[in-house]
Amino acid sequence: MFEIHAGLFNYWVAIALMMVGFYIVIAQGNLVKKIVGINIFQVAVFVFYISMGKVDGGSAPILDESIKVYSNPLPHVLILTAIVVGVATTALALALVVRINRSYGTIEEREIITINHKADHDEDTRS
């Protein structure tokens, strides 16, 4: 069974990493850890793309007389920009975490929800 599907191993690695990231995002309450989870997920997608661009016997896509087979440069371009955009959006998410911490004094999802409920409740009783 493994012999038949050996060529799919790269996808499975990407999927396994993706699922670890996914689990961290949905099951963990800490906001910084959630962002780390999103990063894991993101890198898994990158690995998936890059592994699709690989050609057997190919070389890095830099033109040279002596090289005949190149790997596909297109996924590289897409992922190259995605990495930098990814870190910029990560920075934005971290800024939001810092801001949330300043308002609520915590970065745990559950505590934030409790505080919100409490605030709603207070408003209800006052009105």
């Binding site: 990158f46 592994s51 661009g53 070389s59 996924p75 990495i83 920075a91 810092v98």
Partner: peptide, 29 residues
């Protein structure tokens, strides 16, 4: 997997900048 440009970016960004930013966030929280 032959993606030298991507590896270059990932090493500089993922291991460098985003770690620094996350540490900065931890210092604040």
């Amino acid at each position: 997997m032959d993606a030298v440009d991507v590896a270059f970016t990932e090493a500089a960004v993922g291991a460098g900048i985003s770690t620094v930013l996350m540490l900065g966030t931890l210092a604040l929280t």
